[in-house]
Computed example of a mutant assay.
Amino acid sequence: MVGQHGVRRAAIAAGLVAALLSGGCSRDPGPEPPQRPSSTSPPSTLARAAVGDRLTVTAAVERVIDEGAIVVRDVDLSDGSLLVLTRQAVEATPPQLVTVEGTVILFSSGDLAAEFAPHPYRAFDGKKALAAGTVTVWR
């Protein structure tokens, strides 16, 4: 009789293991991850940023307008270039790399003080620009 108890326990244990394994295999794995929508435009951090958002951009200096304004260029930018306005003098020359941390603004040359010549800024009217908090020049 001792032998039958051992066989019965083994059969019960095997049945439990089989039930656990089959329950694990048939369990619903959950919802599939959502599909990312396809985009017809190239990804752009500036394009996704809204006015007022904080943004950090690393790009090459395209041109220096004056000591408080530079234009940077990078393929990830909406139009390829971005106006950066800063309160600190930026000592960078094209094509130096800079990292700019700031706030996205909607630029209007009409907001500039009278001492600034509006002509170099007109190309940026109505576009997003970056009001820089810090500018790091990579040497």
Rank of each mutant, 00 (worst) to 15 (best):
A92F: 08
K128N: 06
G30M: 06
G52S: 08
A92K: 07
L77N: 05
P118V: 13
D74E: 13
D53W: 02
S26H: 04
V61S: 01
V72P: 06
A18C: 12
L130D: 05
S41E: 15
L97P: 00
D74W: 03
R27V: 11
V2K: 07
V2T: 05
A13W: 05
A47Y: 00
T134I: 11
D66H: 13
A11L: 15
G102Q: 08
V100Y: 04
S44C: 12
R139A: 12
T136W: 08
F116N: 06
A18D: 05
F107D: 02
T56S: 15
L106C: 04
T45S: 14
A113P: 03
A123K: 11
G30N: 08
D76L: 08
L83E: 01
A59E: 03
P120G: 03
P42S: 15
R36D: 11
I65A: 07
L55A: 11
L46P: 09
V72G: 02
W138Q: 14
V17I: 14
L97R: 13
L55P: 09
Q4A: 09
A132P: 07
V64C: 01
S38V: 14
L16D: 03
T86L: 02
G102R: 06
P95T: 12
T103Q: 14
V71E: 04
D66R: 06
T134M: 09
L20S: 11
G68L: 01
S81K: 10
V17F: 09
A10M: 11
W138I: 09
P118K: 09
V2S: 06
I65R: 06
A117K: 07
E32I: 00
W138K: 08
T86G: 13
A18N: 04
G80Q: 03
L85T: 14
T86K: 03
D79T: 13
G3R: 10
H5M: 12
T40I: 05
T40P: 00
A113R: 10
S22E: 04
R54G: 13
E115V: 10
F116E: 04
L16N: 02
S78V: 12
T99L: 06
V17Q: 03
V72N: 06
T136R: 12
T56G: 11
P31F: 08
S108R: 12
S81E: 15
T58M: 07
Q35S: 13
F124L: 03
V135R: 05
I12N: 03
L82C: 07
G102H: 09
V100H: 06
D125P: 08
R54I: 05
R139D: 12
G15S: 15
P34I: 06
T134L: 10
E62I: 00
T40W: 01
G30R: 09
S22P: 00
R27W: 13
I70N: 02
V75P: 02
G68I: 01
L20I: 14
G30C: 09
V137P: 01
